[in-house]
Design a protein around this nucleic acid. Sequence first.
DNA 1: ACCTTTCGTTGGAACGTTCCAACAACTATG
DNA 2: CATAGTTGTTGGAACGTTCCAACGAAAGGT
Lengths: 340, 340
Amino acid sequence: MSVAKPSIHDVATLAEVSKSLVSLALMGSPKVGEESRTKILKAAKTLGYRRNAAARTLSAKRSKTIGVLVLDLHNPVFAEILDGVQIEMRKNGFTTMLVSGGEDPVLEQSDIDTLLQFQIEGLILISHRLATERLALIAAEVPTVVVTRSDIQLPAMDTISNDDVAGTGLAVDYLVKLGHSKIICLSGGENPTSKSRVQGYLRAMERNHLSDAAEVVVGGLSDAAGYAAATQALKMNPTALVVANDLAAMGAIAAIQEAGLVVPDDVSVIGYDGIAIGALKNVNLTTVSQPLAELGTLAATRLVERINNPKEPAKQLKVSAELLVRGTTSEPIKTTGLAN
Amino acid sequence: MSVAKPSIHDVATLAEVSKSLVSLALMGSPKVGEESRTKILKAAKTLGYRRNAAARTLSAKRSKTIGVLVLDLHNPVFAEILDGVQIEMRKNGFTTMLVSGGEDPVLEQSDIDTLLQFQIEGLILISHRLATERLALIAAEVPTVVVTRSDIQLPAMDTISNDDVAGTGLAVDYLVKLGHSKIICLSGGENPTSKSRVQGYLRAMERNHLSDAAEVVVGGLSDAAGYAAATQALKMNPTALVVANDLAAMGAIAAIQEAGLVVPDDVSVIGYDGIAIGALKNVNLTTVSQPLAELGTLAATRLVERINNPKEPAKQLKVSAELLVRGTTSEPIKTTGLAN
DNA sequence: ACCTTTCGTTGGAACGTTCCAACAACTATG
DNA sequence: CATAGTTGTTGGAACGTTCCAACGAAAGGT
């Protein structure tokens, strides 16, 4: 238990220089003489000195810190996006402060408040539920990049996303090509991303002249929600399910198997996101895959650009999603002679 | 784009009181008069005032912030532990700063440095790889709680964990009871938790007089690592696999199926952790389950206790793990007449 | 030999808060 | 009616840094 944390001042006295020079040396300024530099570094080490970020932020009027808000850490999607963000931010000398909103949307706002109190210089929002007006307010205060939301366009805010409408369309088109027509969509609930995906489903059904057969069952983004929604959907005897995300799709598959049906023979399933676990041979999930790490890297790069050059106009970047056909899709079995 | 962030001073002038009173009011002190309080709150609102955490920390000499370091956000285990931590910390008025070390153990140390620079009042380490001496150093600087590591005992540091040795023993004992003897352990690599689990395996094998049959294949904690390790292990024709964690177990199952074998008929598999996804009917993983959220809550509670009362002695808390028998384990098929 | 530049260094102000001692204006106490 | 206490409020110091203007010393140019 050290008595009191050493300050820059203590280092200065030990190294027999001024505190200003210590500060300079610690920031790696080239103006510091070789001799003093080594003396200072040695003194800092022996004292176990550590910079005080609070004082630094206060004085320098910049925190070299950005905030990240993710909706839900349980979904591996976010971890994969975060990887990209963290790597890029570290490269640029920023600290990343991560908060996860949890279930309550009110907490989400209070989390952002906390981040802003820490004087973050930029904010990355990953798959959140904030309303457009709130977003506008936030973007006016701090450079903001929104990842994973294709529904929104604000002049002061970058967005990095795939086209959820088009992506879901890919899934539906493929199923139709295989011969499916009784295709049910399991939605991800009330968040913007899920809404876009439902819209993509509806549009694609329309374009394939299947509007009458279109059916949306409200679910959620977790495996449990997918399970519940699928149980519901199965009552309508679909031959294929287009599910809000991979996690929910895995839940849906569980429900299908539990009902004594076989995937994909009786029911085909397509997820969305392309999480790593879906590639496992025993899951083998057909999915619309987004380049997740790239999403994160792009977000970070954009944010750093905006921070370093505030008049930089906001951009809307799209990454392309692609259909990854694996084992949970096949042609529907012919109408008569059902397996079960 | 506001011109400059309003400070407590601006609020004071607008509300026609002193900055000290504004500070008091914002902290919710009961000493502030009703009239002034409303005036101040109104002024703060119209100005869009927000506390500056850096200044606050610097002046008050406490940050009301704790740091959490997790090994790997990809594993849902950590999200579930984190849930518990976050909820408890919010209850106690602390902000949680989360960093994830990523692959590189050197980064892990630098992440802790960053946290300490932010003047965190406490630190929770979830499944990390730090050496005992480093831990001792850290624990001397800041109240520290280590979650998910049963191998270590330091006087100045709380640990919350299940007994990995005993837990893995549960798995082995059950397999032996089912009639297995060719049981291979897929280790999780060089981290302390994994080492304890391997030790548990070895001890249990010994206790069941199967030391000669004991075999450890080095793997890792990801699904991919489990897949690779299982591929290796299958060459030795095991009838059961005890795997380092659930994620790796899922990878192992993929490898088994890919080899044309059936789980559990040909090979039984037991994981460790009890992640939510393992309960899905199509995964249905037998596992040694720990109460994850409880682990998090306990850690947070202990940390707050230690922060509020620094002379509080450190404790070593154990939660109990239990074997969750699901669908990936069965009796071994009889020696002759293999299914495949 | 002088002036100018460069190099390394310095003290002090500033950042936005909290905390403390002090105070005025009341209210209660004997 | 004086004294003591209470309530609400205040200015100033402090927290540990960064930044700036200014400095002496050494080096370079004429």
